[in-house]
Nucleic acid binder design. Sequence first.
DNA 1: ACTATATTCAACCAAATGGTTGACCAAGGC
DNA 2: GCCTTGGTCAACCATTTGGTTGAATATAGT
Lengths: 117, 117
Amino acid sequence: MTQSNPTKSLDLVFAALADPTRRAILEMLLEDDMAVTDVAEPFEMSLAAVSKHLTLLMRAGLIGQEKRGRVKWCKLEPDAMRAASIWMQGFGQFEALDLDGLERFLEAELGEDAEQT
Amino acid sequence: MTQSNPTKSLDLVFAALADPTRRAILEMLLEDDMAVTDVAEPFEMSLAAVSKHLTLLMRAGLIGQEKRGRVKWCKLEPDAMRAASIWMQGFGQFEALDLDGLERFLEAELGEDAEQT
DNA sequence: ACTATATTCAACCAAATGGTTGACCAAGGC
DNA sequence: GCCTTGGTCAACCATTTGGTTGAATATAGT
């Protein structure tokens, strides 16, 4: 009856992503690791509220936290998104939107030996 | 009517996906269009409960419903997942790459339809 | 017209979210 | 030691969610 682990994990990840504040936090962490206070700074809500958001992101596995001194550092854990991302890709070929553009981007990114099909 | 607020659209899609029943429904609809009663059949909950889930899926744009006779047919609308899927891929798939460049690419790709933050 | 089927609606309930404020601990700086 | 800063905790509040049941609506079949 009870849903197995992977299902529950998808629940947590998708639920965590269903809030604009939390998505914004994840985007900020894409740039760099950040202290909790600095994460909270751009938002017009209390530090406690942001702290709760971080707790949810932690439970979903999307971020990790490490306390050094009195500062708690948050770092992105993008691997937690992989299963959810793959699940979604089962529903369509979203990459078909502009595969050429993506290819050009990846080639530029990976450089020389990227294309040899 | 079109979702005027792009952030809200990601909210709705991710929230809709955060429930195992709704994900299971979407997977069922991957096979074929289904009537509401048939969608509800495998689940150990009332028809009304499933109907509510379908309402949420509708609001998120993930399914469409068409009433023919007294039967309401549900069909998958996987395009509604696109923006969310692409948003996620900005985190998981290309970690080794230049993330700023990827962000610029995705922004250009999604246009104003999927800008969050 | 009567009845059965398909689906939603309405009222209710319990639990979770997203936010607030104020108190609380922990770690530095002086 | 004392004060400030970093961060969580606890209690509270409003709203949403996920479920129930029973009544209501609409269409089909006979």
